[in-house]
Design a protein around this nucleic acid. Sequence first.
DNA 1: TGACCATGGGAAAACGATTGCCCACGATGC
DNA 2: GCATCGTGGGCAATCGTTTTCCCATGGTCA
Lengths: 342, 342
Amino acid sequence: MGKRLPTMPTLKNVANLAEVSIPIVSKVLSGNPGVRVSSDTRQRILKAAEGLAYRPNALAKSLKLKRTNTLALFMPDVGNPVIPEIIRGVEDGARAAGYSPFISHLDEKVISERLYLAWLQEGRFDGLIIATARVEDSIIADLISSGLPFVLVNRREASTNMHVSIDDAAGARIAVNHLAGLGHRRIAHLAGPLMYDTSLRRLKGYQQELDLHGITYDSSLVQEYDWHTWDGGKLAMKQLLKRENPPTAIFAGNFMGAVGALSALKEARLKVPEEISLICLHDSPIAEVLDPPLTVVRMPLHQMGKCAAEMLINLLEDRPCKIPLVLPPDGLFIRKSTAPCR
Amino acid sequence: MGKRLPTMPTLKNVANLAEVSIPIVSKVLSGNPGVRVSSDTRQRILKAAEGLAYRPNALAKSLKLKRTNTLALFMPDVGNPVIPEIIRGVEDGARAAGYSPFISHLDEKVISERLYLAWLQEGRFDGLIIATARVEDSIIADLISSGLPFVLVNRREASTNMHVSIDDAAGARIAVNHLAGLGHRRIAHLAGPLMYDTSLRRLKGYQQELDLHGITYDSSLVQEYDWHTWDGGKLAMKQLLKRENPPTAIFAGNFMGAVGALSALKEARLKVPEEISLICLHDSPIAEVLDPPLTVVRMPLHQMGKCAAEMLINLLEDRPCKIPLVLPPDGLFIRKSTAPCR
DNA sequence: TGACCATGGGAAAACGATTGCCCACGATGC
DNA sequence: GCATCGTGGGCAATCGTTTTCCCATGGTCA
């Protein structure tokens, strides 16, 4: 069904036009330096290819070469403002090595259908970068046992060392240290879904740093929230504000949560940072235009993406992998949402 | 270079295991209903395929069939919050028709290298959806003359009717009408880069509606801004506030601009909506958590994406195309950033 | 018993590219 | 004058599928 619109020129067409054989055209056009060819023949081929606007068919080439030079990048949620950073990092890493990354946006349905596994098995891509925490463990296990090349981003897995993540605990500690340094003692934590190891590590960092400052951990100051939505943080913040003894500072596990929390604080007529301080992990250009601009611990998302691409490509090209598995946070970016505790 | 990690099973392997020929395996597995095969053979083949976890090689299949069932979606900027909506729309449209969309994030470099044209010419994708206004006209012209199947999103082009967009002028008029209905007369317009026809149409709609309400158009109330960045709107808003007779209402051309404008207004200690009203085109979940939540004219971005996919697939499958080229706005969503003019 | 038919399944070509091998040719060496 | 050698370029196989065509085989009918 369906007319095939324009027919692309093939090697055969070029060969006919240049009055030579197909293989020699291939050799000349693929620029193989070792090929010996008379300059006359070369010119004829080049002219013919140019005239026909010839482009090698990627499918045929990849089939023969068993290499597509493409990567698939699986993203959970393009709406999350931290995602673009990662995407750009992957792109930079991949393109520098001659690979083209293609992004696939995974909604629940696709995740459950294991389409990504299929794409890899079907040879459409050389490798896979998975940047979604939502993928089930069982599927990761399948992926590992299939032996197919993939890298996990922002998610660690004991059974493989193909993953890159950021030191969440360290990030959390920087945030809490900042808050504690400002004199805050009742520091709440808006924690991402605790089914994700990333959230768990942030929580642990929060606890550790509290401990270091001699603040006893109060689990009622930890409120889990849904970080897939913008108002997950808002709902959680409202919960937290219901306490009889509300916190003087909030450490939000991610950016979306902080924005939601800020919204809740405003509805509650609490002044940020005068009455309550707010800090979060991750940065985003939006942080600058919020009221007040958000103090954040910036995480090296771009670098994480880039490392993931490099790691994967190293694997694909059978080179030793010397990429760090865990990246340190970029550090504190103080804007206007945190202030000394009154 | 590079070890080829796991070797995927092929039709040949399945055929060997089932002790039949390759073609019959292909026929059975591709589920062609017309194929007549004994149930014994069928069972053996199915079992063998299952046992080997066979998956057809997409490259070989596409090469033979001249159809990949994939679409490439070119996005300008995944950081822009309106983009995810479009992406999801395209996905819905494509998947419903059995196509997989792959997103490529186009930065300036890629745009200038005309990679997208290459990908299409190389047969990697069946068609292309271009959702970036930034692509140069000359490249669009190339694309058209190449005869390759593509659809333009949110951009009109006289030389092709393969495009889907939203009625920007109508959206602008709804916004201005709302503001005028609240009694505002000095309504400023934060206009996107006027090199884009989309921005131009919004400006025109703004002018028309002003006219309808008997308000004379004052070009000094129109401030162009860069809508690729979050603080483009902020800078523009600051410009506007320098006037001796500042506007009482702002109509921002897009969401990012409105967020930036809101930021500038806060810095200037202007109360929204008490002292100045703000409305924009496009909606985003973030609009809810801003302070105040933004009143917007919602545009059918999801539907636009979906229509684009359907239009492209209709073209690919040689079906008549009955998709509307221009979609009406979804309408006004009143939140809290607009109020009667004092 | 011989002709016919339906049925199941295989042979081969094709998609477009790459590559190892080999051959023809003219030039060179003895 | 004969063997050798290097050079330019073609042959053929291959990657993994799909699809058209055709051939066995065995059963049915006269």
